[in-house]
Amino acid sequence: MNSMEKDTRLIGREALAKLFAQWLGEGRRILAPKQSNDKVDFAEVETPGEVSLDPVQTGQSPKGALFPRVEELFSFPSRDGRVELRERDLAALKPTVVFGLRPCDAAALAALAAIFNWDSADALFSARLAALTTVGVACNRCDEYCFCTSLGGGPGATTGSDILLTDMGGGEYLAEVISEKGRQAIQGAGTLFQPALGKDKESRLARVEKAFDLDKVKPALEALFDDEAFWVEQSLRCLGCGACAYVCPTCACFDIQDENGRRLRCWDSCGFGLFTLHTSGHNPRPLQSQRWRQRLMHKFSYMPERQSVLGCVGCGRCSRACPVDMNILEHLRAVAEAKP
């Protein structure tokens, strides 16, 4: 992609509405941040007017577009005592545009893909990913929980977005067309765009300060693994719910459940006490401190080592959602600065 010439244009709010209409006309559904009750979360929209880009971040990540909280893997209708397996029709999955995801969420797609496809391909995940186009919106604001820049990302980073928009003010967006999927999403819509005329997004971007040295985190985590006192101290107030995992754009632990003739995959979390419990009653991770360690190890040590990608993008959702104010940024800083 680097070898290609950078494709940057301008698009106005009204033209964006036409682009939405074009996508709907092509049979795509559009998921975008939408206000409902007192929360802004990804939901189906038809016009840019329904989209709310006001909050720094949505409460939940857009990962449900690829990894829904419950999905059928296959069904097994039973006829006259004979079991028959009926697979999902992947061609029936609706092509989807996720609009308005932040650069951190776009970067998270690589982590999800690494988990689902690192060894054998996960057909359902891969089919959803193939049918997904991401139109990101760069961040012009951030808050104290954001730390994308500490992990190699940034408020204007293009990784994972097929098209990245930056709000230039005055109802105008700078559109960077990043990928082939992005080009396809605006095919035939050339007249909706104006030339960028050298406009630059940098001045519009939020300033997210680097909070720690990422290079120190992995070795520090590994050195700290057996330091029980450290992990107990770090996680004393953690109550072991799954809020952090469920709002996380990269957490992908799952359970498999049979129900009403269907085999379902549903979200699960390594933070739950029963997650690793053996039938015998033995539990390899009986304490919350060990489960909190697992959460950090998985994202910052195991995934980089086994799947060559970080399991965190610095979106800060877990910290915002945590009922007891566990702040992952603080914990990473503590790890990076720990002297085991």
Binding site: L239, G242, Y246
Partner: peptide, 12 residues
């Protein structure tokens, strides 16, 4: 319909 079954209610 929005419940994620994260059990934060239970944990808290």
């Amino acid at each position: 319909s929005r419940c994620l079954k994260c059990y934060a209610c239970r944990a808290a």
